[in-house]
Write a protein that binds this DNA or RNA. Sequence first.
DNA 1: CGGGTGATAGACT
DNA 2: GTCTATCACCCGG
Length: 196
Amino acid sequence: MQPIEESFFHMDTLQLAQHLLGQFVVHELPQGTLIGRIVETEAYLGECDRAAHSFNNRRSKRTEIMFHEPGHVYSYTMHTHTLINVVSGPVGVPHAVLIRAVEPVAGLELMRKNRGSSMKETHLTNGPGKLTEALQITNEYYGHHWTKKPLYIARNERVEQIETSPRIGIKNSGEAARYPWRFFEKDNRFVSPYRP
DNA sequence: CGGGTGATAGACT
DNA sequence: GTCTATCACCCGG
């Protein structure tokens, strides 16, 4: 398993959010290699998107990485959970794609250990906070690049049937709350539960 | 020290 | 599936 080429990340953000579906997230650890296949993403288009942390090109210590080259890791903490993003857009354009769910591919035993032994398989990685816990992804990877080991994206076949919906958890973002910028694989049981 | 940042587990129906 | 109580850190002032 090898990291994807850097040029992969140089595409329109809404395209990238869809092309990421099917790709592998790989985390190589001493205890084993954890792999998840991306089945759900959301695009955040900074300058024109009230739901984005970088709305209006808001630049802070936290959003800074989104102004850098695409392919960097943007992570942030939501109370007890870490959420993980892929920086998108050219330098100076603060876009990102949130990875909302993956399908467990390898390292299931370790994932179960990370998530609690009684956790059902479908609940292992079917949410943005769940998958970071299962794959042991922490804020230490803020500013890392997704082409570098030990945490990287590896190429796999793209998904064939992509569905869209409004994004989740942003209902106070006015008009932006209705943009259909959530993408997921049709009928995949590891997609997070939809909350209308 | 206040504001900003939504997801999760578990109980219930 | 739906409901709801609970969860913590970083930052700027």
